[in-house]
Each structure stands twice: as structure tokens, then as C-alpha cells.
Design a protein around this nucleic acid. Structure first.
Length: 497
RNA sequence: CGGGGCAUAGCUCAGCCUGGUAGAGCACCUGCUUUGGGAGCAGGGGGCCGCAAGUUCGAAUCUUGCUGCCCCGACCA
């Protein structure tokens, strides 16, 4: 990543902007019950409180595995890569191939969970296809020879040609054709979240552009192009909601439809000053309302989709300077962007050669119309950091933070301080919060630096002086605000409604 | 796939030019002091100097080959 060209790069503090709408700080001594924090489990997007199944059990830093690096490994160029290595989230194993350490894995899983929830909400059905595929399948579509060196080819002990899947159109088409015969079973959308491998010539930027990556890919099947459009719209809306829940401003941009043609392909681009490519869009898109949790996916989604697609938004390849220039000056936004999702209608490109046909109402068989819809889950983790960090480290949106709260014990070994920390830990966990308790020996400065680096949304700083008069300090990572508050008040704030 | 660079302790790096058998800071272990923004002192552990050949009495250092990794470009979710 080149030094971020700051040319009009817009500051996107999407998480801050979206979450900052309501002040979480107590309003004063009136005794008025200050509003409890709305954690993502009860947020406007989810609609319902859900069980946090990813929560660890009494997570003490002294017993955790968090290999923090004080210095930046020299290979890391962009900020997300640097911070992920420094915060002990990932570890490189080969070029473009990474192990995910506990902190990184938690974020990866939380991102995946949100993606999954929104796919399910939109009516997509989860499956899991293998990472290793048979070459024969790809010979059917003709892509075995076309795909080139990016495909990692493997020969098994029986000398059969296999490959590590870079994508799954062929495989899902095979599943479909052996199981579905009638238009009555349509529409159908099958997705999975699986590791993929593309043997990039030059992997770089950490997990942003690794060779192995975790991706959600969905595949829709419809009787005709009109049905395919409805399926496309569902995914379009699901993507808007997914990225919004992740605290990101992601803009759907017209993408190159290649040989297929048509207007049904969009890239979802997160704006971040360190983005990989230049993008252009109408400022209106930045504040466009995202469909609410109760949107009817079986209803007409065209108006929602059109409200986005009717406004100018394009990547460098698709940019039309004349059309863009016709916008009022204050609405012309030039920014840097990171592609985090791509949706695509490709008609009968695979169903035709692979014989995935269904009988229509008239009894005649015809190839199904398909679309595919990808979200780079592992890439998103890096994208989130690109969009939300400062000099001290990561600033996680609450929806995907590895822990909701960090407790900093400033004087481990001091009976009163230890007791206060244990009490806060137990009560926050009882309230369903995911908490990391720093019970390690060490200087305050080092502990603060670590907490800031790993970017948990809230820090509860507990020292002997405060404990003596019943207060602890509550720090909000995103803003740096710190307030000394009575312990009960802090618990009330952090415990949620 | 073209061009460039790097490889010495867990991390960041010095030593290489001019060959003599390995160092610093951080991290780690022990002790003492310190304790609200990456502490101090003392002691200690940790290295087939990427791999393999070659030159030499002797190679981290010179030569050749290999491997791995990084950067720029082309390419790409």
C-alpha cells in the first residue's frame, strides 16, 4: 500500500458517527436513569437480543494468549497489517497465509456471525462445501483451463487432478442439478462461509490480500432473469445491512460486468483513507438510510436498490468523469476504497454447460439463472481496522470487538483492588458482556498502551485510590473520554438494558 | 510475471566493505527498588549468523547455487 494519498480522502469514522448519536455518559446527579448502552446484541439492526456464544469464561489476561508486539515487524506496510500483528491477532505462516490467534479469531467469528445472520434473514440457506475440489467439475464449465496460475492445483495419491477451491460456482451448480428439477423449488439461495485459496502472484497487506482467505459466497437460482433480479435485490439489501451492522460505510458501486453485460453487478466499497483504489461517488450515498431489521425481503425491494443505484458511484475502472462532473461540486466525493463485497448476476453461464435445468410451469426444461454474492470475511477484519484506528491502535466497533470491555487492574495483589476487579468482572459477565480482565503485573502505562492497542470499546480502570472511595474510571476508546464514576454506575452503563 | 531489496536471539537492528569463531535495545527468567501513560539497578538464559557447495589454516563476513520473505509495477475478492 502506497502511502495513503490523502487527496481528498474523506475521513470515515463511520463507527464513531453511527454510535455517537447517543451520548453514553451519565447525565448528571439528577438520579435520572441514564440510558444504558445499546450493545449490538440489542441494537436497532439486530432487533433482538441474542446469546453471545463466543464469550470466553472469566478471561484473565494472565491466562490468555495475547502475544503483543511492541515494535512493528518490518514486513507490515499498511496500518491494519501492522496493528493486527502488533495486537497479536494473526501470525504469518507463509506469504499470504496466516494463523489466526485468539484475539483475531474472535473478531473473525463475530464478523462471520453478522454476515451469517443477515444472509439467513434474507432467506439464504447455509451449507458447507469442501475446500478441495475435483478438477473434473471445473473441466465441465471450461474454467479448469481458463483459470490460470491463480488456481492451486493438487494431485492426490491416485494421480487425480484436484484443486484448492478459489470459488464454488461449479460445485454449487453440481449440488443444485442433482437435487432440483422443478421451478416450484425456486427461488433458492445457498451460501457458505469457507476458506478459499487463490495463488496470488503477489500477496500483500496482510489478510487484506492474502492467498488463503475466508469468504462468504452465496449462489442464487431462479427460473428466469426477472426472478434473478429479485434474488439479486435481496442480497443487495442484505449487504447494506451487513456492512452497516459492522459499523462501516460501504457503498455499492457499479462494477464491470465483463462478457455477461447488464447492470446487475456491484462492488461494495468501504471508504477508508488507506483504501487500495480511487473511488468516486455522490455524497448523498454516505448518509443513505439503511433498510431496517423488519424490511420485507419478499416484498418489492426495487425502490430501495434504486435509491442507491440511481446515484453516482464508481470505481476507477468504471468512472465517467463527465457524469461525475455534472454533480453539484459539494456532492462530488473522491475517496479511497476497499472492496469488501461483490454481487454478480451471470445468467446461465454455468447452468448451461453443466446442465442445471429445471422444468418450468409449461413443463419445458430450461437452464436456471444464477448469481453469486461474495463477502471477504477475513478481508473485512483488516478493512474494519483501516476504517477505524488511531495512533495508539485499533478502535473496534462494538458489534465486532473481540471483547466488549477491558478491566485494567492497576495494582494486582492489593486486596481491595483485586476484589473490586473480580466483582466487576463477575457482574459484567453475568450481564452477558464479553470481558478481558488485565490482572497482570506491570506498570500502568504499559497496560494502558496494550488496552488502547487492542482497541476494546470500553476500559474500566481500577486503582486503589478510586476503590477506596468506591469509584473506578470508565474510558471510552473511540473518543479517549475518561470519567471517574461510582462502580455501580459503571456497571449499569456497561451491562446494557 | 518483470524490476529492486532483504535473510544475524521472540521483535527491531548493528557487525560483513578490510575473514580470526557473535553484539545492542526491547522481550524473557531471578532479586531489589519503583508503581496512573510502554520504569531503574544488578545478575541470568536464549543463536547450526536461511540452506548447500566453494575459496581459505580459519567464513556471519569473500564466491556460486538454492530457498524464503519484502517492496515497486502488471494482476486481483
Amino acid at each position: 500500500m502506497p502511502a495513503p494519498r490523502s487527496r481528498q480522502a474523506i475521513r470515515t469514522s463511520a463507527p464513531a458517527r453511527r454510535q455517537g448519536a447517543t451520548s453514553e455518559w451519565p447525565t448528571g446527579a439528577r438520579g435520572r436513569p441514564a440510558r444504558a448502552l445499546s450493545f449490538h446484541r440489542r441494537c436497532a439492526f439486530c432487533g433482538a437480543a441474542s446469546q453471545n456464544t463466543l464469550r470466553g469464561f472469566r478471561m484473565r489476561l494472565s491466562r490468555y494468549f495475547l502475544p503483543i508486539l511492541k515494535e512493528t515487524p518490518k514486513e507490515a506496510e499498511i496500518v491494519s497489517h501492522r496493528l493486527m500483528l502488533r495486537a497479536g491477532m494473526i501470525r504469518q505462516q507463509s506469504a499470504g497465509i496466516y494463523s489466526w490467534l485468539p484475539l483475531g479469531l474472535k473478531v473473525l467469528e463475530k464478523v462471520g456471525a453478522i454476515v451469517r445472520e443477515e444472509q439467513n434473514r434474507a432467506g439464504a440457506i447455509e451449507i458447507l462445501m469442501p475446500t478441495i475440489q475435483a478438477a473434473d467439475l471445473w473441466r465441465e464449465s471450461g474454467r479448469y483451463d481458463d483459470y490460470g496460475k491463480e488456481m492451486l492445483r493438487i494431485v492426490d495419491r491416485h494421480e487425480r487432478d484436484m484443486l484448492y477451491g478459489p470459488t464454488n460456482e461449479e460445485m454449487v451448480t453440481d449440488i443444485f442439478r442433482t437435487a432440483v428439477r422443478s421451478y416450484r423449488d425456486l427461488p433458492l439461495n445457498l451460501y457458505h462461509i469457507q476458506w478459499k485459496f487463490r495463488d496470488e502472484v503477489r500477496p500483500r497487506f496482510g489478510v487484506m490480500r492474502g492467498r488463503e482467505f475466508l469468504m462468504k459466497d452465496a449462489y442464487s437460482f431462479d427460473l428466469d432473469a426477472e426472478g434473478a433480479r429479485r434474488s439479486y435485490n435481496k442480497m443487495f439489501v442484505a449487504y447494506l445491512r451487513t456492512f452497516a451492522r459492522l459499523g462501516l460505510t460501504a457503498i455499492p458501486m457499479k462494477a464491470d460486468s465483463g462478457p455477461i453485460g447488464g447492470d446487475m453487478t456491484h462492488e461494495f466499497i468501504v471508504l477508508a483513507s488507506t483504501g487500495e483504489s480511487e473511488v468516486y461517488c455522490d455524497r448523498d450515498l454516505l448518509d443513505m438510510p439503511v433498510p431496517a431489521v423488519d424490511i420485507d425481503f419478499d416484498g418489492d425491494l426495487d425502490p430501495v436498490v434504486k435509491s442507491f443505484t440511481s446515484r453516482y458511484a464508481a470505481t476507477e475502472e468504471m468512472h465517467d468523469a463527465d457524469v461525475f462532473g455534472a454533480l453539484p461540486g459539494e456532492r462530488q466525493v473522491t475517496a479511497r476504497g476497499i472492496e469488501v463485497g461483490h454481487i454478480f448476476y451471470f445468467g446461465t453461464k454455468y447452468s448451461e454447460p453443466m446442465g442445471a435445468k429445471v422444468a418450468g410451469p409449461d413443463g419445458a426444461e430450461r437452464p436456471v439463472h444464477m448469481g453469486s454474492y461474495g463477502i471477504g470475511v477475513s478481508r473485512l477484519v483488516a478493512g474494519l481496522i483501516e476504517a477505524s484506528h488511531d495512533d495508539a491502535g485499533i478502535i473496534w466497533p462494538e458489534s465486532v470487538a473481540p471483547f466488549d470491555v477491558g478491566i485494567v487492574n492497576l495494582k494486582p495483589g492489593d486486596a481491595a483492588t483485586d476484589a473490586a476487579c473480580e466483582d466487576i468482572l463477575a457482574r459484567l459477565e453475568a450481564a452477558g458482556r464479553d470481558v478481558l480482565y488485565d490482572d497482570t503485573e506491570g506498570r500502568a502505562g504499559a497496560k494502558f498502551a496494550t488496552m488502547d492497542l487492542i482497541g476494546l470499546p470500553w476500559q474500566v480502570i481500577v486503582g486503589p485510590k478510586g476503590v477506596a472511595d468506591g469509584t473506578v474510571e470508565l474510558k471510552r476508546r473511540a473518543t479517549g473520554e475518561r470519567h471517574s464514576l461510582p462502580i455501580d454506575q459503571v456497571l449499569a452503563r456497561l451491562s446494557g438494558a
